[in-house]
Design a protein around this nucleic acid. Sequence first.
RNA 1: GGCAAGGUAGCUCAGCUGGUUUAGAGCGCUGGUCUCAUAAGCCGGAGGUCGUGAGUUCAAGUCUCACUCUUGUCACCA
Length: 640
Amino acid sequence: MSENCKKAYITTPIYYVNDVPHIGHAYTTIIADTLARYSRLIGLDTMFLTGTDEHGQKIEEAAKSRGRSPKEYADEISGKFKSLWDEFDISYDKFIRTTDEDHKLGVHKAFETMHAKGDIYKDNYEGFYCVSCETFFTKIQLVDDEFCPDCGKPTSIVKEESYFFKLSKYEERLLQWYTDDEKCILPKAKKNEVINFVKQGLHDLSITRTSFDWGVKLPEKMNDPKHVMYVWMDALMNYITALGYGKDDANMEYWNGTTVHLVGKDILRFHAIYWPAFLMSLDLPLPRHIGAHGWWTRDGEKMSKSKGNVVDPREVANAYGLENFRYFLLREVPFGQDGDFSQKALIDRINSDLGNDLGNLMNRIIGMSGKYSNLVIDSTNVMKYHEKEIKDAEAIIDTLEPFIFELQLNRFLEELWKVLTIANQSITAYEPWAKIKEGKEEEAMALVALVANLLAKVSVMLSSVMPKTCASISDALGFEITPENFNTIIKDKKLLETFTIKKLPALFPRIEHEELESPEPKVASKKEKKAEGIITIDQFFETKIKIATILEAEEVPKSDRLLKLKVDVGENEPRQVIAGIKEFYTAESLAGTQACLVANLKPAKIMGLLSEGMLLAAKDKEGLSLIRPESPKRSGTKVG
RNA sequence: GGCAAGGUAGCUCAGCUGGUUUAGAGCGCUGGUCUCAUAAGCCGGAGGUCGUGAGUUCAAGUCUCACUCUUGUCACCA
């Protein structure tokens, strides 16, 4: 990879300014930062982009509710992202904002290009709008062709003029790309989901809106001022507008290099389908990798504001060290999978991997060289006594690079750590303290120098993950981590010159106590829940079960299993319930009978029909039986 | 319900196209040991019916089928 690609382009998504930065943002950004740093280290001309996505109705409204202009509001949140990345020493080369004038120029050019090509056309976007949910739905989503699937209230038809992108046109080419380029989307499981989705057929994409104002206007020449670009058209283009697309193409060179887009798995579809289709329409090359990472949970539970268990990356970095945190995030979980954040896991990683294996090793050679050679370390005889160890380490290091670019940072670190094991093992194997006693000083010195050289290699390779830490290691070992020294130490496999090692304080002091506050109530409630699925009586009574009298029943056309029922649950109006019991009960046999109904279930739409409850039934191999009162009860009687 | 990926030591996971007689790694646990070091290192152990049940084969975590559970995804899940 490093051979034939002079340029590398690494991106994070632009983060939407409706939320402050959390661990998920930090994770994406840290992975990207690691890639970018590694790319620079191996001598690639690297562009690392991050930024913020600032348009859209949500932002418009959020700003309004705070009595501020959208731009003011976006400025504030965008600033929070930028300052966190600065605080985290993220090595971005450009921080783009979709409110940047240059960005708008680029979006205009893209729109015009796609329009000129015939890939954008004007039509009507027909939607069903639910005023209370402020959401558009398609006809298929509606309940009874009329009601909002979320709240059940009537919706109104809104016909809005919109420009569409001919996404459908690119279906075949996208599938071809997925097939041809094995690693275009990572990890593979996610790629399969994308392929599946595309195979089901793509609809053209509505890319403009007239219902709100806070967005990139259409190009002047379209002469259609009431339209603004809609979300993804605006946002995705940032990857090229950041390189000057539409204004000054100088940096577009990066687009022809190795491009890696990092995204969270929730927005993969947009990056793996819409974005390449846009690029095809623009006749631009497609990215090398689009990598979708998973989520972080906290102590096994989903993080949410309401639970109050959201991990604040700044808090963790302050408590445990930024680079330790980086190491943990990258080492703990295979790319693409969800990871669990817990203090125990974090502390274990720091103490075990970092403290025991790496930090302690550093101390060991400082101690030895101090006692045996007045801190002077001389590599002259390393190959004489330790060629095997050096070769073994080099063999490991030679396999590492693909792990980085294929985003398997956990594997990368895991493999790299084997070099530390070689170092620790060789100390025990050669017992330099014994050599000294036997007067074999040359051998003892060679051993110390072996370890110093292994540490040097590790520090270079690890530097993109833990830049500061590795800088201090390399500084102690008398060299600087630079692309030139990457060539000398890693590529050309040269040993260190004679140097005097500098004493360092412990790099990773052992952590004995938990230093981060955990969300208090969760521990107990988690135990309760985990106890064999036992629930409290209160939890049971959250389900309201009532006696329902079936007033009428009829078959649902074109359905094998469904019956439409009108049932009386003691309310003013009878309810409509769609029940999947047609295989076991005829419509006629049900009228006038009773059954138990879950009465506080969220209404749902089944085959376009509203269902306001669920009949309880037991089903085994013999068939299905409704759960009914032994003797008739008044409609609406509570069950419990 | 369709599709996809999975169910391997206490935990997290490796085990490609079936076959080096005792199924691996890391962490944790435990026994031993050195002393340069952050009670760190190193060596060893702990014995997991490889989800269940069949089948193919001389031979199956490794192939086939069924079942079951988990996760993801899509869907007219209630």
